[in-house]
Simulated assay, not measured.
Amino acid sequence: MFSAHDVLETTNTTGLSEADATRTKYERIGEHLKRQIREGQILPGTALPSEQQLASLFDSARSTVRQAMGLLEREGLVSRVQGKGTFVSDQARQRLSCGLDILALVIPEVLSGFYPSLQHSFEESASQTQNQMLVCCTRNNIDKQGNVILQLIDNQVGGVAIVPASTPPTPGYQIRQLQKAGIPVVLCHRPVEGITAPLLGLPFREIGRLAGEALVAQEHRRCGFFAPHRTRTTDLYLEGFQQALADVGCTLAEEHSYFGAPGVIDMQELDAEIASTLQQMLERPDRPTAIFTSFDSMAERIYLHLTKMGLRMPEDISLIGVGDQVRHSVLQQQIASVTVDETRLGHRAAELLDQMRTGGMAIETTLTEVMPVEVYQGTTLGPVNTNV
């Protein structure tokens, strides 16, 4: 059982380490109490001695003790109850046992699409709070994602921002394992059913609608749709896109739609199939005059194949994708796209993890923020060719 005597005894018999010698007195008091919490000498729910008692035990001014208590409170290790005192938080030991200097970013892909900007901004924000960053690629595979999560728990990371695998949808128990280990999680792009955690979501239906409206505004009425795979996210894109077409009395023909194999994230694997499907679509008498694709990496493939076929964009056919606001390559700069500010999303994810780790926000919270989107015109979006 923890008592004031225990604090006094340990304080008097423990010398200052080299690290302690460089700290201020209130930081040394805070670190001393942290060690006792971490080692189980002070248990969750225990009431700490009063500020006056601690000041006497540590031979310090009350203002110094108050600073130490403020430090522990900001880190989510103690909570103050008006009129009752200061108590050790239920998850204090978990927080201290976690590798609080490491934040993990778990994503389906690292080199294409949204992900380079997300990585860069997340790492930038993590470094500002003196945290290291670990990037884990799942290839959009839930089994690989599950293994990654187990490794993160074993390595006691301080927090995880994750773009959940989508084919099939991420099971709730994978994310729940992290939360049960006291590791904060921020969901990026899409939710996970049954999980309560901060969500930085994308407005998928709105993205599809904006793409459709951009094409409709250029008088396109026969449109094609390409997606790497069929998921709930894809269905939301389609709902918005089809609504924009329906508003002008048009529909998306089944023969003008293409979905790749479940779980495929590498566009190289779909390249031959994309080329073949495009060829078949464009040979039809009612061929599409414009194409909307749900992923910029696929849009790049389509752009190259259309060019090989001798088609000009936007004179012969228009193309619009979905991607990051930062257009990383020369080819991306050409392609029209509904864009998301992934830089902002990465910064916000790191910020939320820091708030949860320091006790400013509960690990299980219903906070949802939807990222804004806008249309990037590029050079592949133009008026319909009436001769097509």
Score class of each variant (00 low, 15 high):
G263A: 14
K308P: 00
Y258A: 11
L252C: 12
P288R: 04
T307G: 00
A227C: 04
C250Q: 07
L238Y: 11
E255F: 05
E255P: 01
F241W: 08
G263K: 12
Y237E: 03
Q243G: 03
F292T: 09
V264T: 03
E315F: 08
D266P: 05
F292E: 13
P262K: 06
S294T: 06
A261I: 04
Y237P: 04
Q279R: 11
T234V: 08
C250N: 05
M309T: 00
F295M: 14
M267Q: 09
V248Y: 05
Q279G: 01
G263H: 12
G260D: 12
S297E: 07
D296H: 12
V216M: 08
L245W: 08
A275R: 04
L238H: 05
R232S: 14
G310S: 00
K308A: 08
R232C: 02
R301L: 08
A244T: 03
S318E: 02
A227S: 15
T234L: 10
T231A: 04
F241D: 00
A272W: 00
G224C: 12
L236G: 11
E219S: 15
A227Y: 10
I274D: 00
A253G: 07
F225D: 13
T251E: 14
E213D: 08
M313C: 03
E239K: 14
I265H: 05
E219V: 14
S276I: 06
V216Q: 09
F225A: 09
R232V: 14
R230G: 11
R284T: 06
D266L: 02
C250R: 13
L215K: 11
I291N: 04
Q268C: 04
E213Y: 06
L304M: 05
D235I: 14
E254W: 04
E273P: 02
A227T: 14
E273G: 01
S318G: 03
A244Y: 05
M309R: 00
G249L: 06
T251W: 10
K308M: 04
E283A: 05
T289M: 13
Q268V: 15
S297Q: 07
I317V: 06
P314A: 03
A217Y: 15
D271N: 03
A253H: 12
R232A: 12
C223L: 14
F259W: 02
A290I: 06
E254M: 08
F225R: 14
L306F: 01
R284L: 02
R232H: 05
F226L: 04
T234K: 14
D316F: 01
A261G: 08
G260C: 04
A272E: 12
S276D: 03
F225P: 12
F295I: 08
H256I: 13
T289A: 09
P228K: 15
D316Q: 09
R312Y: 01
A227M: 06
D247Y: 09
F259Q: 09
L238N: 09
Y303F: 00
L238F: 10
D235A: 06
D296M: 11
I274W: 03
Q218T: 10
F225C: 12
Q218D: 11
P262A: 15
I265V: 13
R222L: 10
E219Y: 11
D286Y: 10
G249P: 01
A261R: 14
A299F: 00
E315K: 15
E213M: 02
A227E: 12
A261V: 07
